[in-house]
């Protein structure tokens, strides 16, 4: 064996990785090779100094701090669940006048008049693309309290058909990217992508109220596919696939057959 190979054994010995016979062989070599003996002594010194590094501890309870943050987050989520508009920034009234001209229907449950008007542009931006594939059902407009009907088209956790199109682990309402860099959730009328710090890095165009998110799945660390199925699609086939590219903050849509 060469000195080079013994040098590796010296390293392995520090990690208690040598067998007894290997250790003996190394020992014999080191006794007859001053260079390797010196190397061994120096590495032993480094290793013991690393062993002696202080065992530091945080000066306050990190768990306590983090639990406070988690509670605050949960409370915010709770508020959002009760009132989908609570954490939404003021809606762009300007666009409303433009979109209101378009004839579109309000699917699913509709909310109190004020919110309904504000929501129209949000609903219409994407749904118009569906018109080629989807026969929209007649609107059933009601003026119920929005709190009774938190889901505006996109269904909230737990309801809706369980059958999925494509495979994968992700659910319809939440999907974490393979390495955990991003988390996508369905919030109100959009797909929201957060980074690990919980900061929003992307918010999709508003989704149609006539479609359900059938599934979300990360294709890789930066691309999320979202399968949308029209609500009235009894046969459970067809719809749209939206592909979100997080890095370029773009989304493309293609038919899902």
């Amino acid at each position: 064996m060469t000195c080079e190979e013994f040098r590796e054994w010296i390293q392995r010995e520090l990690d208690h990785d040598l067998t007894q016979s290997e250790a003996q062989e190394l020992d014999q070599h080191v006794r007859s090779c001053p260079n390797c003996a010196e190397e061994k002594a120096a590495l032993l010194d480094v290793s013991s100094r690393l062993d002696d590094l202080p065992y530091v501890t945080p000066r306050f309870s990190l768990t306590e701090e983090v639990m406070k943050k988690i509670d605050a987050e949960d409370q915010r989520d709770e508020r959002t669940k009760q009132d989908p508009e609570a954490d939404r920034p003021p809606i762009r009234i300007k666009e409303a006048s433009f979109h209101r001209k378009r004839r579109w229907w309000l699917g699913g449950s509709t909310v109190a008049a004020g919110i309904a008007i504000l929501m129209i542009p949000l609903l219409s931006s994407i749904t118009q693309d569906h018109s080629t594939q989807v026969q929209p059902q007649k609107p059933s407009i009601s003026t119920k309290d929005p709190r009774d009907q938190p889901s505006m088209g996109i269904q909230s956790k737990g309801d809706g058909p369980q059958k999925m199109g494509p495979g994968g682990h992700a659910s319809r309402n939440q999907a974490t990217s393979p390495n955990g860099t991003y988390q996508a959730t369905v919030q109100n009328q959009a797909i929201v992508i957060d980074n690990q710090s919980g900061e929003e890095v992307y918010r999709s165009k508003d989704l149609s109220s006539s479609a359900d998110v059938a599934q979300m799945k990360w294709q890789d660390e930066g691309h999320l596919s979202v399968w949308l199925r029209p609500k009235d699609d009894k046969k459970e086939q067809g719809g749209d696939i939206i592909i979100i590219d997080v890095s370029s903050k773009t989304e493309t849509k293609r038919p899902w057959k």
Partner: peptide, 25 residues
């Protein structure tokens, strides 16, 4: 988690920030 962060970063403040972030993650 804190110990790793401390020796990865070399100072207490960054270590506190990193380990809280790690616990949240």
């Amino acid at each position: 988690v804190y110990r790793t962060a401390y020796y990865m970063l070399g100072n207490e403040q960054d270590a506190l920030d990193a380990s809280q972030e790690a616990l949240l993650r």
